[in-house]
Design a protein around this nucleic acid. Structure first.
Lengths: 123, 123
DNA sequence: AATATCATTTACGTTAACGTTAAGTTCAAG
DNA sequence: CTTGAACTTAACGTTAACGTAAATGATATT
């Protein structure tokens, strides 16, 4: 069980950021006797997913939906099916993002080759 | 040569967004006799790069630096070398992003398999 | 038990990336 | 040449994602 400052340091963010994510319902750590937040392994895995999502321009609202995958494991069959379907859509989106990134990379490399060509011309 | 509304519609954004990007110095379209913005092919290619960058969580400040690749083609040798070096760093970063996205995809697929397993258990 | 260093909630402040409105200008159609 | 739609600048409004400060409570150390 980690304290909020340890968690913040672990992910390289402020404690405010962690509390804000709790405000939004993204995480819901246990509390100690004296109402102090205590983060378990599952909370940390969730936060890892959250910060990874952030790095790819997902909004916190979108991330909130993605994080539901973490919370719905003892739900009913119908709910599970929808969760799986939702997860499929998300991974499909990620595939698209990867493809687009590679296209972007290709364009930039094209530009670089042009420039290098010009450099060679100048000797 | 396209007008601002045509450009906005083409990319599915507001005209304000396009003007804002000009405010930041990201694009610099020609002007007609009567001071009306006219976007050429090069402006459109640049905007395409800009919106693609946005989809991956790059800030407009970061994008501004990336877009410099478009503007510096008749600069001097030293400048060209630095541009090429900068471009290399950017493509390396994109490689990292791709790798991380694939890791993310793997994690989500792992979760999905767990859920599907549970679905099979429930018959 | 006092002191220092953490924690808590509450609430207002900040910045990026636009949205929106106002007041005026240009362009295409009739 | 006028009328209406689309353009212009200028300026203030908005929202997400936090930053920061105040007042207070918990915890560890000496």
């Amino acid at each position: 069980m980690m304290t909020i400052r340890e968690v913040a340091k672990l992910f390289g963010v402020s404690t405010r950021t962690i509390r804000y994510y709790e405000e939004l319902g993204l995480v819901c750590p246990e509390r100690s006797e004296g109402n102090v937040r205590l983060f378990g392994a599952r909370d940390l895995a969730k936060l890892k997913l959250i910060f990874r999502g952030k790095r790819f321009g997902f909004s916190l609202d979108e991330i909130k939906e993605m994080v539901l995958l973490f919370d719905l494991d003892r739900s009913g069959r119908r709910q599970l099916e929808r969760t799986v379907e939702y997860g499929r859509q998300r991974t499909a989106e990620i595939d698209e993002k990867i493809a687009e990134l590679e296209e972007m990379k290709g364009e930039m490399q094209g530009l670089l080759q042009e420039f290098e060509q010009k450099l060679r011309e100048k000797g």
